[in-house]
């Protein structure tokens, strides 16, 4: 599946009656790397979950390559090309690494597992270990690899580097960069580490209280520390 284009217009969503994401408009062209940054509790995770169909949709449209998906179930959205790696590193703790990967095949060829192992060789070494026996970084690799098995055209990554050792962060960031460089998918990354987020992305969105308050090229915000101080916090780049 080639990289997909995501278009969101006037999106309002949340949990039940509570609206968390408000009036979000965004356009992510095919193959773009987009980072979403912002302080904790500003709606970044809810926005990704909303794109995946895991929250209550109130109004607005979501389109992948021109096809409207805002009413579709998570299953249909996955079939339309969305891949999602949630913040909670959702690996199945009592299944082995290989079984976790097999569970994510959903009709795709088994050879995809070998490709996942090429991207994350560490997982191949651990293929017979259970999910709970993996480190946080390995769980993150596994969750990402499992999402990739479905050959998504748009990959949503929710704070994949949170709480990981610097060496693992580097390994994962390199893998994400490799994925983006392949041009086969559009990647939307929610990230607390502003430095990582800016280094990864072409474009950046800043969210505050469920709304997008700034958007533009990552180099612009990287060069203007006052913007970062204003929206994210003084020490975020260090």
């Amino acid at each position: 599946m080639p990289a997909g284009t995501l278009r969101v217009s006037g999106l309002n969503a949340g949990y039940g009656r509570t609206v968390i994401v408000e009036e979000v408009d965004l356009l992510v062209p095919a193959g773009q790397r987009l980072s979403i940054i912002g302080r904790n509790g500003m709606g970044k995770t809810t926005l990704l979950a909303t794109l995946m169909g895991l929250t209550t949709h109130h109004s607005g449209t979501i389109e992948i390559d021109g096809a409207s998906i805002e009413k579709a179930s998570a299953t249909r959205r996955a079939a339309a090309g969305l891949g999602y790696v949630p913040q909670t590193r959702d690996v199945f703790k009592t299944l082995t690494v290989e079984e976790n990967l097999v569970s994510g095949l959903k009709g795709h060829p088994k050879s995809n597992i070998e490709r996942a192992y090429e991207m994350f060789p560490r997982l191949k070494e651990r293929r017979r270990n259970l999910g709970w026996q993996l480190s946080g970084g390995e769980q993150q690799m596994l969750a990402t690899a499992r999402a990739l098995l479905g050959e998504p055209s748009i990959l949503l990554l929710d704070e994949p580097l949170e709480g990981l050792a610097p060496v693992i962060c580097q390994e994962l960031t390199a893998a994400f960069g490799e994925l983006a460089a392949s041009g086969k998918m559009t990647i939307i990354l929610v990230e607390q580490h502003v430095k990582n987020a800016l280094a990864f992305a072409d474009e950046v969105l800043v969210m505050e209280r469920g709304r997008i308050v700034w958007s533009g090229p990552s180099r612009v915000i990287a060069e203007d520390t006052s913007l970062i101080d204003k929206y994210v916090g003084v020490s975020s780049l260090h």
Binding site: L54, A74, T75, A78, F92, K106
Partner: peptide
């Protein structure tokens, strides 16, 4: 819930 996040029903 995890399975739902994977895009399966």
């Amino acid at each position: 819930v995890r399975v739902r996040a994977m895009g399966a029903s």
